[in-house]
């Protein structure tokens, strides 16, 4: 649906969910994200996914772990992210992906924005959640997305667009905050 009123909180949350699924597996995000945004997966979806995101497989690949994009030590980055998720009542599942994987951070934003959606009307909750979203985007997800975008320039497959739209989407959300 194309129209020009601003995106609703719920739509933003579902976009985060779609992006998380797109980075989780070759066939991810298909049910939610629009084709005009990201072309659908071709038949060798798996090798395209590995070509884009498995450094062990190709020299141009871009790792999807924030620790590979920052000079922070893994253990300290994991600890900080776990504290973020813990602060909002979330606990990692036993077989979960590492806390600094881009799909996990997108999933966390999906959760915060969804919570913002259901807290409509409660001003205090909204300001708290928006402040947390802004800080998490500023400290973690946005610089991480910009770095992924930088790596994705050399991609030859559909994931070039995913990284482009993902960074744009996160940047627009960040600009939306202005001064809170």
């Amino acid at each position: 649906m194309v129209s020009n009123e601003p995106i609703t909180v719920l739509e933003r949350s579902i976009c985060y969910r779609g992006l998380a699924e797109a980075y989780r597996s070759p066939a991810g995000g298909v049910g939610i994200l629009d084709e005009s945004w990201i072309p659908p997966p071709s038949e060798n979806a798996k090798s395209e996914f590995l070509e884009a995101f498995a450094p062990a497989v190709s020299t141009t690949a871009c790792a999807l772990y924030q620790s590979a994009h920052s000079n922070r030590e893994q253990t300290s980055l994991y600890e900080e992210l776990i504290r973020w998720y813990d602060h909002f009542g979330l606990q990692r599942k036993a077989k979960a992906e590492l806390p600094d994987h881009v799909s996990v951070e997108l999933e966390f934003m999906h959760f915060l924005t969804y919570r913002e959606h259901v807290s409509a009307g409660d001003e205090h909750a909204l300001t708290t959640l928006r402040r947390a979203e802004k800080e998490f985007l500023t400290k973690h997800l946005h610089p991480f997305s910009v770095s992924i975008l930088g790596h994705s320039e050399t991609f030859a497959n559909r994931y070039k667009y995913l990284c482009l739209e993902h960074e744009l989407f996160v940047r627009l959300h960040l600009q939306d905050f202005g001064e809170i």
């Binding site: 000079n71 030590e73 253990t75 300290s76 600890e79 900080e80």
Partner: peptide, 8 residues
């Protein structure tokens, strides 16, 4: 202690 941001 010194495993947080800026403490590398």
């Amino acid at each position: 202690w010194t495993n947080r941001e800026g403490m590398e």
